[in-house]
Design a protein around this nucleic acid. Structure first.
Lengths: 320, 320
DNA sequence: ATAAACGATAGATATTTATCTATGGTATAT
DNA sequence: ATATACCATAGATAAATATCTATCGTTTAT
């Protein structure tokens, strides 16, 4: 049975449906002897007659009927698979598995939302986890794409920036420094700071920024969320370094002010990564294009106008 | 997709399971390049990658997983079919469609019962109908085997006798003729007869028997069943011609007596028929053998000892 | 009785296939 | 840094496959 061919099944199916070798031959654009031979081979493989001829009429034997079922099921399976292939080709079907670093959870869901609206047939699976796990999943090729704040090193990974993530200094609008131009960095360092907890990427970047310049921050308070920090800053409890994205909604409010501090914004980026050598699926490719496009739009809408910020124009692909 | 081969699927399945070309090659007793080539061909046919290699590890793409499902289902179907084939070969499975003429309904079900006991995996379909319908079904090849009282003529049919069906004259035990040897046929014809309704094969045979000899029967009464006839005969209402089979249970009773009438028993037979040129299925063959065997047993048990009856020894196959 | 339709078979052929050996490139592990 | 394991590719070959044309024997229909 292993040695039967799909061709034989195809021919058999046609004969079984037409109950005629000649008819089947016409349908398949073959000559009648070809059909006879194909059927003979299949019958020899099975070891029992599949058809019987009584007078001039052809009948299916019990086994013939069973084999017909098998043949039809098989062909059905194949055509379903073929449809899947063409759906995937047209991005009308498929899966997209994305793993993002925790800090990206503030903007990635929104992006996935609009992506899903554009391609409703796609199933999206989002995993949000810490950097270590992200890298691990990347190494194990568990997902299609990965989003993180800095491209992995010591790994053969293809990474590309798709969105600027400038870190800015915010103060309340009635803060003495609000509105001043070119505030020296030393002046900023004198202010009491509000910070996210240890381990936050933003906090790390900020502290490194100041320590690189030989300064140490005065941390007045640690807060568990960006929202809490913004509220505390607005209440005049101190100033803070936060991602400009988290200000998206407050940019035009009169509560918070971005200070024009020397050396700011600290330039960070969001990266899209995937294993080097991985051929992206059609869906992944579509999401990648989508991210870059959206990235530009977001940058133009929210990031332009940040003091000291110059948007990167080219898409910078970073090799490992 | 139509051009994929089962071989390719087989190789693909092995690679997908082992996640290694080399492993698959070992498993299939092939060289590794052979596996590579088979997979390349399959991939080309599908048009999209089925596997991806990240570093040294191999992963299934989404399509690969789908195709794996298809492949497994296909092979499952085939092996189920193969099992069916071998079950049928061993008469452990299969269907048996038998159509019998109405008058055979008195003994066929019992036979089917014991056949079913011997081959419990067989599904038996029994159709009981009149001669015309039986012949029609036979012409249309709707069943496997047919049982009737006389083989069809003017049809290309293979028919073989499997059971004698002698018609005997019965009278009550205290009837004057009971026990007499070599009763002349004219004497029998003087007696009042009990008969089945018009159209009964037995009645037809009996009347023809007498009319062939220039006599006419005096029919005292028509009765609807063989049981009723036997009771009436036992009650002394007349004598009757009935199939010896119907006496199976009463042979040793003291109520009924088979008369040793000249020219009796009328020899009738039960025939097994099927279209000429039809190759019997394994099950049909088994049932055919069973019938002949049972036929002999029944003949030995019940028919021996009927006055004037000589069992046929050879199995007489009648051509059309 | 004859013709027409149908399937089986034989013989021929071009193509495809399945497979091998040998070798080369890469990635992981030591 | 080297060795090892793994997959890809090229080239060669024997086998099989799929197909055709021509023809024959039956069976049905006219």
């Amino acid at each position: 049975m292993r040695h039967a061919t799909l061709r034989q099944l195809k021919v058999f199916e046609s004969v079984a449906r037409n109950l005629s070798y000649t008819r089947a031959a016409e349908e398949l654009h073959l000559t009648q002897p070809t059909v006879s031979i194909q059927l003979k081979q299949l019958t020899d493989i099975v070891g029992f007659p599949l058809l019987e001829q009584i007078g001039k009429r052809i009948f299916l034997t019990e086994l013939g009927q069973e084999l017909l079922k098998v043949a039809r099921e098989t062909f059905d399976n194949f055509s379903r698979f073929e449809m899947l292939v063409s759906d995937i080709k047209g991005v009308k079907a498929g899966k997209l598995k994305v793993t993002v670093i925790t800090t990206a959870k503030y903007f990635v869901p929104r992006l996935l939302g609009s992506f899903y609206k554009r391609y409703p047939g796609i199933e999206v699976f989002l995993t949000v986890t810490n950097r270590e796990k992200v890298l691990q999943r990347l190494a194990n090729n568990e997902d299609d794409l990965y989003i993180l704040g800095q491209p992995p090193e010591h790994m053969d990974v293809h990474a590309e920036m798709f969105l600027e993530n400038p870190l800015v200094v915010v103060a309340s609008c009635d803060h003495p420094l609000a509105g001043q131009a070119g505030i020296p960095i030393g002046r900023i360092a004198e202010e009491p700071f509000l910070m996210r907890e240890q381990g936050s990427g933003t906090r790390l970047s900020a502290q490194r920024f100041f320590s690189d310049r030989g300064m140490q921050l005065k941390i007045r308070m640690e807060l568990g969320s960006n929202e809490a920090i913004k509220l505390a800053v607005a209440g005049g409890l101190g100033i803070a370094v936060i991602s400009a994205h988290t200000l998206a909604l407050e940019r035009n409010s009169k509560e918070l002010s971005i200070l024009d501090a020397e050396g700011f914004p600290i330039r960070r980026q969001w990266y899209l990564a995937y294993p080097a050598g991985k051929q992206l699926t059609v869906v992944s490719s579509a999401f990648r294009d989508f991210l870059k496009e959206e990235g530009r739009a977001v940058a133009n809408r929210y990031l332009a106008g940040i003091p000291g910020f110059l948007p990167v124009t080219a898409n910078t692909d970073l090799p490992a």
